[in-house]
């Protein structure tokens, strides 16, 4: 149990580092945390290894990760390998708005509630099957044009 605590801390630190990472910082050399500390990065992209034997040691080579969409947007990294070592990671795509930006100066954050309150009327995006069919048809028409 005690050994788990440093791992959790490392995970949290790794996540914060990745989250606060700005594309403008991408020219700096950064060390890539081990994959399990970076929840925003999909496995198989940042950790992609170059084909063994194709690179002579000391020669830098870049590999683009796949573009992965998480709940905040698209994340795509570019990894620079020198031989078998990762020497640089830059973000090709990064969501420009994190959770902290949502709660701007004018808004407060709350948890979502579900109530069965007594109300006179309800506001919502109520649509009918009729409008759905019309919308679908218009999309089909637009595609055919």
């Amino acid at each position: 149990m005690r050994r788990a605590i440093p791992a959790i801390v490392a995970t949290a630190v790794g996540f914060v580092l990745v989250w606060q990472y700005e594309p403008t910082m991408s020219t700096e050399q950064v060390a890539l945390p081990s994959p399990n500390t970076v929840p925003a990065l999909p496995p198989g992209s940042a950790t992609q290894q170059p084909m063994p034997g194709t690179d002579s040691p000391g020669q830098a080579r870049t590999v683009d990760g796949s573009a992965e969409r998480n709940r905040h947007g698209v994340v795509q990294v570019q990894v620079t390998f020198t031989g078998q070592k990762i020497t640089d990671v830059t973000f090709l795509q990064l969501p420009n708005s994190g959770p902290s930006r949502m709660a701007g100066p004018r808004l407060v954050q709350e948890t979502l509630q579900a109530q069965s309150a007594d109300v006179e009327t309800v506001s919502g995006a109520t649509q009918t099957s009729e409008s759905y069919i019309k919308s679908l048809q218009s999309a089909i028409d637009a595609k055919g044009a």
Partner: peptide
């Protein structure tokens, strides 16, 4: 008027 906001 009590106006509910639909749960998503």
């Amino acid at each position: 008027w009590r106006v509910g906001i639909r749960h998503p």
